[in-house]
Design a protein around this nucleic acid. Structure first.
Lengths: 138, 138
DNA sequence: CTATATGGTCAACCTGCTTGACTAAATTGG
DNA sequence: CCAATTTAGTCAAGCAGGTTGACCATATAG
């Protein structure tokens, strides 16, 4: 219960932080997409796998993010069928805002823990976590 | 990230545990409803508040759970307008299965931690958590 | 004992997702 | 090198789970 509630609180904080930074047309779900797109970008199919939704739904979400200016489609360097989805400057600014909001929420906790306690926390969560599976489904 | 992934993993484990126990017609979302209904039950409006959805949506979900045999509607003892939603025996069996699945996932972790480490974990999560807000929204 | 607030329902609709059928490009294997 | 298959993506239709808005019946307040 505590685990679920803490996760929810973190997502809520990030969401309201992002909104307070002026990105009011995004939902938390978009953040999970940004996680995959940041860096070198991803194809529609890769995004779909990351979000565990169909590629049609991923494509639709990409269209929305493009329309809102967070993402752009580029030709794929090696595959003429595929196109690469990458974050625009606005998209990157948004992820920075999200990171800042997360840090703001976690900082007081981090400051109150000894290095040992942090390690305990990190280890415990790591043992439960399934790498890459961030987005809840239900 | 670790926190979100761990929460997701726990929900996944509970869901598959519940399904493996024969309750194949439920989604994790129903579990969040069961949390509120277990014990003395709740009215539709209370359920709606707990899930942070409209009372129409909560009523629809209650109908579904009644149709599937997990919940029943009883007259409210003090308010003739309201009706009390309570878990049937099947609903209670399902929550027991969910608790067992959660325990199964958490047990190896618990066994590997000293009491001090458990306290650290509990305190850290408690500091982040917003009481009662379990269900993520996005 | 009227006026207002609250619990619940009905109906219409919207959004994000799914399934299914399809095209174009890439890959595989004779 | 070319036919067969796989893979990236799109189009279209439909569905599930939610929303808003209007409404009735009962409860509560002045």
């Amino acid at each position: 219960m505590l685990l679920l509630s803490a996760a929810r609180a973190l997502v809520d904080d990030i969401d309201s932080g992002v909104r307070a930074s002026g990105f009011t047309d995004l939902r938390p779900a978009h953040g999970f997409a940004f996680v995959r797109l940041s860096g070198t970008g991803a194809t529609t199919t890769e995004l779909a796998e990351h979000l565990e939704i169909t590629k049609q739904a991923a494509s639709q979400m990409a269209d929305e993010l493009i329309r809102k200016g967070y993402v752009e489609r580029r030709p794929h360097p090696t595959d003429a069928r595929a196109r690469l989805l990458v974050l625009t400057e606005k998209g990157q600014a948004c992820t920075r805002a999200a990171d800042a909001a997360a840090a703001r929420t976690l900082e007081p906790l981090a400051a109150s823990l000894t290095p040992d306690q942090k390690a305990t926390l990190r280890t415990a969560l790591t043992r439960l976590a399934t790498p890459g599976r961030i987005r809840p489904i239900w």
